[in-house]
Design a protein around this nucleic acid. Structure first.
Lengths: 127, 127
DNA sequence: GTCAAAACAGTAATCATTACTGTTTTATTA
DNA sequence: TAATAAAACAGTAATGATTACTGTTTTGAC
């Protein structure tokens, strides 16, 4: 299957590049509709999945039942607020060493780790 | 709201105690039906949620779209196989220090961390 | 310009989970 | 032990994110 260019996919990727807040498919859908009013939610999902499979974006799963998407593919930690549900980056060196340590204790093949932190974000704490 | 005893809840908890494989609500449902043939799936979900909220069991979310449940409430790592979907415990000291490190870099309140590893389990690797 | 493959819009289906409703169980009080 | 209110139940319907399907449009190589 040869990949063909698509203006919709470009737009989705471009939209995601402007955001640091790890939007959901629905948010991406609403954002991209400003340039493609007729784009369908299915197209958004298909392209987000495609881009994630190609490694151009990252699907972020923080246990809130909704997939978030991140343009920044470098390994880094996420924080999710239990109150407002926001997802933020966490500026902390990513401990690849933990994956290595896990490999030494496990019989199968470990490809990677997923780590997120939860609690209340600064805005929710102040209220 | 006063908690009342329920034989169904006991049975759910007892079933979970016998398992080390982090079953889903559906698996628990099938297991408990051996003793309560008329138990409803809703009852299983309600009690699993109740037990998790009380801290007697743990809801394990490893990004496969299905909630798993664990009788072992001590902090520990999980591994999920990308091929067969099995969830295993990983014998590796749990790095609470990472949560502490995150606290020092984040403006809000961090309550805890969730970490899992993914890859292929020993059984799937051998095939 | 032709044409086949890929992508699309729009819609229907899936599936885990939650919510609702009328009945049964629990546990307290008499 | 009987009465009673709250809690829990079984069964079913609803929800909501995501995926699958279908007929049409777009893409890109020749």
């Amino acid at each position: 299957m040869n990949l063909k260019h698509s203006r919709q996919r470009d737009s989705i990727k471009k939209f995601l590049a402007t955001r640091k807040d790890h939007p959901t498919a629905d948010i991406v859908y609403m954002g991209v509709r400003r340039t493609f009013p007729n784009i369908s939610l299915g197209t958004v999902y298909r392209n987000l999945t495609l881009l994630a499979d190609m490694g151009e974006i990252v699907r972020v799963r923080v246990g809130d039942g909704v997939d978030h998407f991140d343009y920044d593919t470098s390994p880094h930690y996420h924080f999710v607020c239990s109150e407002c549900g926001c997802v933020r980056d966490l500026e902390l060196p990513f401990a690849q060493s933990l994956t290595q340590a896990a490999r030494e204790r496990f019989a199968g093949e470990i490809e990677g780790q997923v780590t997120w932190f939860y609690g209340r974000c600064a805005e929710c704490t102040e209220k």
